[in-house]
Write a protein that binds this DNA or RNA. Structure first.
Lengths: 298, 298
DNA sequence: CGGTACAATCAGAATTTTAGATAGGAACAA
DNA sequence: TTGTTCCTATCTAAAATTCTGATTGTACCG
């Protein structure tokens, strides 16, 4: 069915109710009183339904009118929002931002930043894709995302440093590696099962770093962490990603001989450089601020 | 902000996209091609935003146009729905149905019936209120509900029998009453704590039936059932309400000497008789059918 | 190079909406 | 009661908008 009632008519309905009468509504709408009267009457005749009735000399909503009023509110609101979106698009704002987030990135950073961004620009869709290692590079090189957060990135791109992510090797407290009394050497590690995250890029790339004899691969870091908590092996994780399991004693940091931590510089890359829209630019700013807040808060 | 784009203009946008061009859209809308062209142009100039661009001799959506198209779909859809609601209201359909449900009524009945009703009339709001004993009567007498499901009701009202609800006295299997080897007399019951549901009507009414020396009262039957499952006392419940605890051995039927079950006729009352709207009438029909299905399914 | 399908544009016509004036009814005060 | 005020309904002419039909200018197709 095609709507035959104009948005202006619905607006008139709202105005009459909110202003408390036809006359006041007319003023609010910068129309004459007869125009408002006409609009309502036309609506009523189109619907063959009485919306207002006269109680004394005031117009009050009928029972049906109340129901329609609520709907009309939502309808006009949505129309306004749509136009607002259009205004933003007209200013060059993007309709959608594609965000590629490497699995090492702490959720806290992304969620806080997106929450802030959503308040400023609720109309811009955000498309998240989780990537791993070379998957992030692919997102940059092939323009699959407008904004990429990752640890490694192809050279030649403008990258903004965000956070210094501390990595640590961890295992369940009952894991055999924790029973050894000395600091662990690479050889110790090699004798146990390592949990790694599968590269989301082309399959034959292996950015794999230590070569453990046994390794299990997971497609997401979260799955891998859950496995580690079950004691299924040891693994390297960014500390920010495993604060909860560490506190709950489900995981414990392994004492590695050459320093128990590795650092990775988490960077933000704008694959199209300065050609990105103002929305992407703004989101990038917010991400940077959020990252700073997080690193200062620790 | 007040919307300045007409619904018709949004519809034009949809039509052009869906039909695949201005000319075809014109046909679909029963307008001339120039009218469609005019509508789109006006919209574009109001928003100072290009929505279509010419690829060869075809009009295709710009990037921004795609985003607006999605919104426009939702918007027009909502407008159509609102008018549909108005149509129903015009036919005398109510905007809202108030339903008073006694706490003895099995959820199954209400939920199934409402599910069916919601499919037919998704635009009618349903307001549920849970009542107890004289609370149900009050809902009828004072027109607080359009439809009442209860076991007892004031005389003089049109009541439709729905279900025969079987009541049984139950207690946790470990309850002392289950340890007695003989059939239970009223005197046996009186020596133990009874769990009852508080009357939701005026406080001084006591439709209380057996007089147990000790009794705990609950404001909802669900709370009472949970208490009984904990072994806090015995109580009378409709069997349909406690099938789950019975199966899980949390409750067990007490062997009462004069028959272990009582029956209550669950009835449906239309407080305003035939003056109710078609929606209420329809819901009543559905409830009746659902009740029949339930009683046959057992 | 026609022929055709499509969108932009224009002028006048048709339709819709508006303002302003007026009338009638209800509230209110004296 | 009466007069006054406030409000909505209705009417007419004017204003604004939207529509049609014809025309033009392109791009595609053979």
């Amino acid at each position: 069915m095609k709507p035959r009632i104009t948005l202006e008519q619905w607006q008139a309905l709202l105005a009459v109710v909110d202003a408390g009468g036809y006359a006041q509504a007319a003023e609010q709408l910068n129309k004459s009183q007869s125009a408002v009267s006409y609009a309502i009457q036309k609506m009523e005749s189109l619907l063959s339904l009485q919306i207002f009735e006269l109680a004394g000399r005031k117009a009050v909503l009928t029972h049906a009118g109340v129901a329609l009023y609520r709907r009309a509110q939502a309808l006009v609101e949505e129309a306004a929002q749509t136009e607002q979106l259009a205004q933003q698009l007209a200013k060059g704002m993007e309709a959608e931002i594609r965000l590629a987030i490497d699995t090492i990135v702490p959720d806290e950073l992304v969620l806080c930043a997106l929450a802030t961004f959503a308040e400023e620009a609720p109309l811009i869709r955000v498309q998240l894709m989780e990537t791993v290692l070379s998957g992030s590079e692919k997102a940059i090189l092939e323009r699959e995302a407008d904004l990429v957060l990752a640890g490694v990135y192809p050279s030649g791109y403008l990258a903004t440093p965000l956070l210094q992510l501390e990595f640590a090797a961890v295992a369940h407290p009952d894991h055999p590696l924790h029973q050894l009394s000395h600091a662990l050497s690479p050889a110790d590690l090699r004798r146990h099962r390592q949990l790694v995250v599968r590269d989301s890029g082309p399959r034959d790339i292996d950015a794999g770093w230590l070569k453990a004899d046994q390794r299990w691969t997971f497609s997401t870091m979260d799955a891998s962490i859950r496995a580690a908590c079950q004691g299924l092996g040891y693994a390297w994780y960014p500390l920010l990603k495993i604060q909860q399991p560490l506190q709950q004693q489900q995981l414990q940091i392994l004492p590695i001989s050459q320093g128990s931590a590795r650092n990775v510089q988490l960077s933000m890359v704008l694959p199209r450089g300065e050609f990105c829209g103002p929305g992407t630019q703004r989101l990038a700013d917010i991400l940077q601020q959020t990252a700073q807040a997080i690193s200062e808060g620790e």
